[in-house]
């Protein structure tokens, strides 16, 4: 199963993004930012890869502010999505 990992510049943006996803009916799973990506105690949100266009749309519309998007599967290799 392919997923998207959304990372943020601040925890407040993560909280905001969670609320926006909920409002749009997109299932988002709060998770700690993997150690492969940051050593600090960051919060990320995992969503199904199918939502990629919706997520990009929310970013373009300025509804959510993200730091990076990564794709990853069960093998937990995080590839930045440009």
């Amino acid at each position: 199963m392919k997923n998207i990992l959304i990372t943020f510049d601040s925890t407040n943006y993560a909280i905001q993004c969670e609320a926006v996803l909920k409002e749009k009916g997109i299932k988002g799973q709060i998770m700690p930012t993997p150690r492969e990506i940051t050593k600090s105690c960051g919060i990320s949100i995992r969503v199904d890869y199918e939502e990629i266009e919706n997520i990009k749309g929310l970013i373009n519309d300025g509804k959510i502010k993200v730091k990076m998007l990564y794709s990853f599967g069960e093998e937990r290799i995080f590839e930045p999505i440009l």
Binding site: T11, A14, I15, E18, Q29, I30, M31, P32, I43
Partner: peptide, 12 residues
Amino acid sequence: LGAMLMKSFIYS
């Protein structure tokens, strides 16, 4: 913040 940390904790 507390609610978010709890979700992150339980997921981990």
